[in-house]
């Protein structure tokens, strides 16, 4: 088995290097974000304000040489602003479709929980269908299509929490977390040096990205790992503190995300560490805990961590060692 970096690995290196010129001290988050990109999955970045959610999304969008749109969700944002509308043209005496914000390779949905449920639903439909239907006419969004949404978990007044069923559409939910002291110093210096996300060059063109995505789809994954991922997901459904566990879509997401992560490491195969590393981003937002567990301040992350510690990791073809 080759140990040379794969094409997807090279693509990751280029994007990561570009993004990290602005987003300092968060290599793991950047890696997971690119893994989601490789897996053709959408990304929800959730954390308190000021940690660089939007910056990361902007950097990622700018690094890819395709089109990108930023949609700032507000209560008065309409579904038509997302999907586009049919406008009557007097000259041609016809209805012409004016595409909305989702018609781009990378869509940055900022503060998605500030939009109304109706607007959110319009976006979420596009995320799963990858097309828009207006007046019975289907309009496909460009490929690749990646939605990077951000939301603020505090200041809940005037916001509309995303329903769990719709959260399931996101491949991963990432939390930025506070940077370390060193990283924060670097952030301040880079801000003072005037590195603007919008000035970042595109380092990967769309065909190259699509080649990498195709390669990631072919990343080898052992049956034992598939079974492990399924066991992990199934265990969330039997856990005492969980009211609704992850669905089979969660298992699929786990495998796809692990393949994406393996590609960022330049590997052509998935390891158990890949699955464990993506378990929290993939599963945490798919679990609905019991009220009792929530009263005990127990989070979905605790549940997943507990399962990761308890479920034995597989050792393919090595029984008896």
């Amino acid at each position: 088995m080759t140990t040379q970096p794969t094409r997807a690995g090279e693509v990751y290196e280029r994007i990561a290097a570009n993004v990290q010129r602005v987003v300092r001290g968060k290599p793991d988050v950047v890696r997971l974000a690119v893994a989601a990109l490789f897996s053709e999955g959408h990304l929800l970045i959730e954390d308190v304000p000021g940690l660089g959610k939007t910056t990361l999304a902007r950097c990622l969008a700018r690094s890819i040489g395709g089109t990108w749109n930023r949609i700032q969700f507000t209560p008065d944002l309409l579904p038509g602003d997302i999907t586009g509308v049919q406008v009557y043209h007097q000259h041609g005496e016809e209805f012409v479709f004016h595409p909305g914000g989702v018609f781009a390779n990378v869509v940055l949905a900022d503060e998605i929980n500030r939009g109304t449920p109706k607007t959110q639903s319009a976006l979420l439909e596009v995320m799963s269908e990858q097309r828009v239907t207006v007046d019975a006419v289907r309009h496909d969004v460009p490929r690749p299509f990646l939605v990077i949404a951000t939301q603020n978990p505090i200041e809940m007044a005037g916001t509309y929490r995303l329903p769990e069923a719709q959260l399931d559409r996101f491949l991963m939910r990432l939390r930025m977390g506070y940077p370390s002291l060193e990283a924060e110093v670097m952030v301040i210096i880079s801000d003072r040096a005037g590195v603007d996300p919008d000035e970042l060059p595109a380092v990967v063109d769309i065909p190259t990205l699509q080649t990498a995505v195709a390669e990631v789809r072919g990343t080898r994954i052992d049956t034992a790992l598939v079974r492990y991922a399924a066991t992990l997901t199934a265990a969330t459904r039997q856990y005492a503190d969980v009211r609704y566990g992850a669905s089979p879509r969660g298992s699929i997401a786990l495998i796809r995300a692990a393949q994406g992560l393996a590609a960022t490491h330049g590997r052509e195969y998935v390891t158990v560490d890949d699955i464990k590393q993506v378990a929290h981003p993939v599963l945490d937002h798919r679990l609905i805990l019991t009220p009792d567990a929530e009263l005990r301040q127990r989070g979905a992350a605790d549940v997943v961590a507990d399962l990761l510690a308890k479920i034995p990791v597989p050792v393919a073809g090595a029984a008896g060692a």
């Binding site: 158990v272 464990k276 399962l307 308890k310 034995p312 073809g317």
Partner: peptide, 28 residues
């Protein structure tokens, strides 16, 4: 073969467990 590599891992894991490392079944 593969069993030899896994055996080496099991040996390292047991060594560290004997030295007090908090080893769980789900650890790589």
């Amino acid at each position: 073969g593969t069993r030899g590599v896994v055996a080496a891992w099991c040996e390292a894991r047991d060594l560290l467990r004997a030295h007090g490392a908090p080893v769980t079944p789900g650890m790589t």
